[in-house]
Amino acid sequence: MKAGSNLEKVLAAGHFAVTAECGPPRGADPEQVRKKTPFLKGFIDACNVTDNQTSVVRMSSLAGSMILAENGIEPLMQMVTRDRNRIALQSDVLGASALGVRNLLCLSGDHQTFGDDPEAKNVHDIDSIQLLDLVRMMRDEGKFPSGKELKGAPKLFLGCAVNPFADPYDIRVPRLALKVAAGADFVQTQCIYNIDKFERYMADLRQRGLHEKVAVLAGVTPLKSAGMAKFMKRNVAGMDIPDEVIKRISSVGKKEQPQLGIDMCIELIERLKGVEGVRGVHVMAIEWEEKVEEIVSKAGLLPRP
């Protein structure tokens, strides 16, 4: 065991893992996090806590992680390189580990032009791959990048994200190989709607033998409506939603669309379970945490180990 997190144990035991996502609130009220926990507790192995996603200021991912942990949910803390230089990143890695966080997802983060503070300085002292390498070194070698010894190495199960649908396609598997070489133990993917393209990605990934080195957790997001699908297709960079998917969700009335979205998500998970190398799902039910149980349960993934 590298970090001894629940997620690491579930994967090591060969179970199909389930993670979910929880965005901390736009304020200091801890209740906003606590009230989501009954929808997640017992249904997932770990929960991502986002780090100012889309550059919108929110409660810090470390604080959000601690509130989840207090309520019996294992946090998977996200950390972006957009806002902190290597000094702050190292310090927060140590702090998170000291407080009991055992999973860390290393990201570069959405550019600040998307958020509330487009005038902010964009740090990017190091990139997400260098952050993986940095934390792996701290964990496995017990050293700072400066070479100085750590008094207590951080214990973190390390993850990265990939978007198999971004361009150029043929760099996507090599770039994951870089992340794995840098220290990624698991990878969560961008939400999948184009299953054919994802299967092609997995085939390319397997050809490189990467499925044996990194646990792939396939990302899914249930559609709430046809409008949401069209909006994401239009506005989210690197989001690949095929026309058939939009046609299908549009085929029923507005009232029935949420349930169809859930059903489509469950079908997708069923199919993903059969893809060699996929070792779990990452259910991103955006502001719809109350549906996680239904999705996970109907996909035959309950009870959790």
């Binding site: 791959i129 260098q130 994200a161 960079a237 690197g238």
Partner: peptide, 11 residues
Amino acid sequence: KSILHGPCGGS
């Protein structure tokens, strides 16, 4: 983002 291992997922 001045990243040294790109492109990121937003390309």
